[in-house]
């Protein structure tokens, strides 16, 4: 029953256009074990996305081991140690759609376009990050072990 149930949930959450070229993320437990794209995530690119306040937006809410970045957020858990606390698949799910792990979360869904309301026209139908960017961020977060 379980795979059917997961497929039902995913079918209602992920839209077809955003996934045209990419693997459909399959949730297993509280993780997405499989990468969203075939190309391996690049931690250097991932770090650049995380600290970019217009792209990743991460440091608006999170703080982390980025000594050159002033004015980091305090709304959300510290990113230091994220790669020790979570598995790669758990991190991937929490970026794709953190509400799947915690429905009360304020973390925006980075790879979901449906179920959102009043999205500004410039962003309508677009995910916050691309599948490749998410893989880059996951690869970077996995390096944060301390």
């Amino acid at each position: 029953m379980r795979p059917i149930f997961i497929a039902f949930v995913l079918g209602s959450v992920f839209t077809a256009p955003a996934l045209a070229q990419e693997t459909r993320p399959e949730i297993v437990g509280d993780a997405i074990p499989q990468p969203l794209v075939a190309i391996r995530g690049d931690p250097v690119r991932g770090r650049a996305i995380v600290v970019d306040r217009q792209v990743g937006l991460c440091l608006l809410c999170h703080s982390g081991p980025f000594p050159e970045q002033r004015l980091q957020g305090t709304l959300a858990p510290e990113l230091a140690g994220a790669g020790r606390r979570w598995s790669e698949g758990q991190l991937r799910l929490r970026i794709v759609d953190a509400a799947k792990a915690n429905p009360a979360t304020i973390m925006p869904p980075y790879y979901r376009t449906d179920g959102l309301v009043r999205v500004a026209s410039a962003y309508r139908g677009k995910t916050l990050l691309t599948a490749q960017q998410i893989e880059d961020v996951v690869a970077f977060l996995m390096t944060l072990r301390d």
């Binding site: 925006p108 869904p109 009043r118 999205v119 500004a120 962003y123």
Partner: peptide, 14 residues
């Protein structure tokens, strides 16, 4: 209370 926008946030959440 409405969660809205690409970031899916409400006024109340902040």
């Amino acid at each position: 209370d409405l969660r809205q926008g690409q970031l899916n946030l409400s006024c109340a959440q902040c």
